[in-house]
Nucleic acid binder design. Structure first.
Lengths: 239, 239
DNA sequence: AAGTTTGCTGGGAGATTCCTGAGAACGTGA
DNA sequence: TCACGTTCTCAGGAATCTCCCAGCAAACTT
């Protein structure tokens, strides 16, 4: 549902000891178009990385046996240069995190939102693979969102969004012309431990509309009883 | 009677502890062209999923032994990647049903309508199987209904429908050129606990006609004493 | 032709869903 | 410390939807 690409986008290795989080990541990453293997500890991770040659590793820094840094060091010692997206606790100290991002690597903090993880992984792959870096801008009609610069424009005019507004709009832009239920939006845009009601989605849709549907024709439409959909008004489709 | 495809569309496992609901689901899903196995508790469900390898699991989250989430986790632990359509109570609080839609999975709330369940199952299968994603549009004459965008058009012109109108039209579109009785429509389109009279069907047929048969030639025809049928007027069939 | 049955549709009450402003709680940086 | 932006909740009101009813129209029966 995240993506329309049918061919596997990349091969990932997910290393995470909490089964629930591991399966959450594996399931949604598979659905996003990735090929996914999983490991619950550092030793298994190293073995799988050795034989599987994944394109990228999603690595929790807190593991039961060896920690993520040690896994990284051993990987590098063996000449493996795969980029890594680290998963850390939110309260991890700043300098530790800073040390993580030296290469093309990146990190996300627990609890994360699925959209955030997927976006980071794609960004890292984009950077390390080099090539045409045109995957960084999402467009729909006269709306564009750049994932690198975090810049959003409607018809050329720059629009300032809060972090949550940005993530919500990115999710909508990844699923144009598809109705997304409020629960679906909650599951993808908000952190996995969010326990609030779906009324929060209504609020943020309202904020977004105020900012991006202010002048031009509305792109965000309500499907009462179903959800929201990003769509170009019919009278404009033939223009 | 739901579908014209003669070969089994997919193999389903229905897990539901209330016998009435279980049989209602099993019977109508079989009639819709699916091959169906049933289980009344989580343990049986896991055993059947193990040996039967169903393409999709319809899973009530309230079970006598282990709950649906636990069943899901154990399924995933064993490497089973079947998509799941969850069945939940309508008043389930947000935290209970969180995370249900992440892997392409979906959910329906009790009491549901059969059309809703079947539509969700087909949508999930469509998405997870990937392939040509053109199965999301139902067409008849110059009428089309898209299940992803929830958009309905007659001759290109967009038509706005309420949720019930949408479900009714979808049911008609799934059974073109077949007379559907009011009782049949009631049983498929309305929730299974609806206790109203079939006069409500007349009302909604009237609403639908006003919206989709407004300009073009009528597609919805009354078979007095029998029911309604979606049909192209004879003088147009050769055009 | 009259009577009977069946279907159509306008009106409206009540329920549901959605929108949005107001404000509390929180963290961040000046 | 204070100001500010952000997240999230809540509640009133608006918009829409569901459902029922009743009167009328159409079709069928005798």
């Amino acid at each position: 549902m995240e993506t329309q690409t049918p061919a596997p986008e990349a091969r990932l290795l997910v290393v995470e000891d909490e089964p629930n989080i591991r399966e959450l990541l594996a399931t949604s990453l598979r659905f996003a178009g990735f090929e996914v293997e999983t490991a619950g500890d550092g030793a298994t991770a190293l073995a799988l990385a050795e034989e599987g040659e994944p394109d990228l590793v999603v690595l929790d820094v807190m593991l039961p046996d060896v920690d993520g840094f040690e896994v990284t060091r051993r990987l590098r010692d063996r000449g493996r240069q795969q980029p890594i997206v680290f998963v850390t606790a939110r309260d991890a100290t700043g300098d530790k995190i800073a040390g993580l991002t030296v290469g093309g690597d990146d990190y996300v903090t627990k609890p994360f939102s699925l959209e955030e993880v997927i976006a980071r992984i794609r960004a890292v792959l984009r950077r390390t693979r080099g090539g045409a870096d045109e995957g960084s801008t999402l467009r729909f009609h006269d709306l564009e969102l750049n994932e690198d610069s975090h810049e959003v424009r409607r018809g050329g005019r720059v629009i300032d969004l809060s972090p949550t507004e940005f993530k919500l709009l990115r999710y909508l832009l990844l699923n144009p012309n598809r109705v997304l239920s409020k629960l679906q939006i909650l599951d993808h845009v908000w952190d996995y431990d969010f326990r609030g009601e779906s009324g929060i989605v209504e609020s943020y849709i309202s904020y977004l509309r105020r900012k991006i549907d202010a002048d031009g024709p509305s792109l965000i439409h309500t499907k009462r009883g179903v959800g929201y959909v990003l769509r170009v008004p019919p009278e404009l489709t033939t223009v």
